[in-house]
């Protein structure tokens, strides 16, 4: 037994629910860390919050219609993501407004459906904070599969994704299918939210899509290195946050967010002006 500051730090590992929650929180941290790099560099930090609200609408609709959660919420989330991309591309209204319109409407529809046909209060709490205690093997497999798929896609499409993020106009002219790349990113984000929302909640997803990538940005001037640092920070936040939450008996989501926020503050202080200049170009941080 390892005793530290009066805690038996291995104590929670005796419980299967903790081990399952820890695995999901760590993998989800890494997964959101990878996608967060593109989210943050595109100035779409609000997308995690927005898309998870949209997926809630799909989840509610599928519950009311008796459909499988993954099918209903998945189709809805992917569709919302693609719709946001399409509206934002027309440039009459920006990406932030597009996210606001599509996702709040979707969330409101889900809420209305649950008001009318189900238990709204319970579902909303579950959506916001998730339930790491109720993690099932199926959830772990789903998160792991999406992580492997996302990493594979990012490796294969890395150059196109970077080009389309940095300079979409020239990328298009040189033959990169920018619309497809953007749709692909939205699909990956929707899938990520779909498999992690029930477990870690929308608040945590939003935080994990923004904070690790912003921390990574302060430490490096290379997007390739950001793609290593950001998932590492995300995974570390998930892992440490779970352990701290157990011992302090605090909300898992809130603790993970606080751990990553502390990392942000430390790196912000340590990198000084250099780090601040680097994140000054990021929106919504």
């Amino acid at each position: 037994m390892i005793i530290c500051l009066g805690f038996d730090i291995l104590e929670p590992y005796h419980f299967a629910f903790f081990r399952n929650g820890l695995v999901v929180a760590t993998i989800a941290g890494a997964l959101c860390g990878v996608l967060g790099v593109f989210v943050v560099l595109r100035g779409m930090s609000y997308i995690g919050h927005g898309l998870s609200h949209a997926v809630f609408g799909g989840a509610a609709a599928s519950a009311v219609m008796g459909l499988n959660y993954f099918v209903g919420a998945g189709v809805w989330g992917v569709w919302s993501g693609v719709l946001i991309g399409r509206i934002a591309r027309r440039r009459i209204i920006g990406a932030d407004a597009a996210i606001g319109v599509v996702t709040t409407a979707s969330f409101a529809l889900g809420l209305a459906l649950l008001n009318r046909y189900g238990q709204a209060k319970k579902s909303i709490e579950a959506v916001l904070f998730g339930s790491v205690l109720g993690v099932r093997t199926g959830d772990i497999i789903a998160v792991a599969v999406v992580t492997v798929v996302v990493i594979a896609v990012v490796v294969v499409a890395y150059r196109k994704m970077v080009f389309a993020t940095f300079d979409p106009e020239v990328a298009e002219v040189t033959g990169v299918q920018v619309q497809w790349i953007e749709a692909l990113l939205m699909v990956m984000l929707s899938l990520t939210i779909l498999v992690t929302m029930r477990v870690i909640g929308t608040l945590l997803i939003s935080a994990l899509l923004v904070i690790p990538a912003s921390v990574a940005r302060m430490t490096t001037n290379s997007i390739a290195r950001m793609l290593w640092v950001s998932p590492a920070i995300g995974a570390a936040s998930g892992f440490l946050g779970m352990n701290v939450a157990y011992h302090l008996d605090t909300s898992v989501s809130a603790t993970i967010i606080l751990v990553s926020a502390v990392m942000f503050a430390v790196v912000y202080g340590a990198t000084g002006v250099r780090g601040r200049v680097r994140i000054s170009g990021l929106h919504h941080v």
Partner: peptide
């Protein structure tokens, strides 16, 4: 402010046919 080096910018136009980062 985008995190890319000069070399990374220059090779971007080859992205269309590249499947390895």
């Amino acid at each position: 402010n985008f995190p890319v080096t000069v070399t990374e910018v220059v090779v971007m136009t080859q992205s269309r046919h590249k499947w390895w980062p």
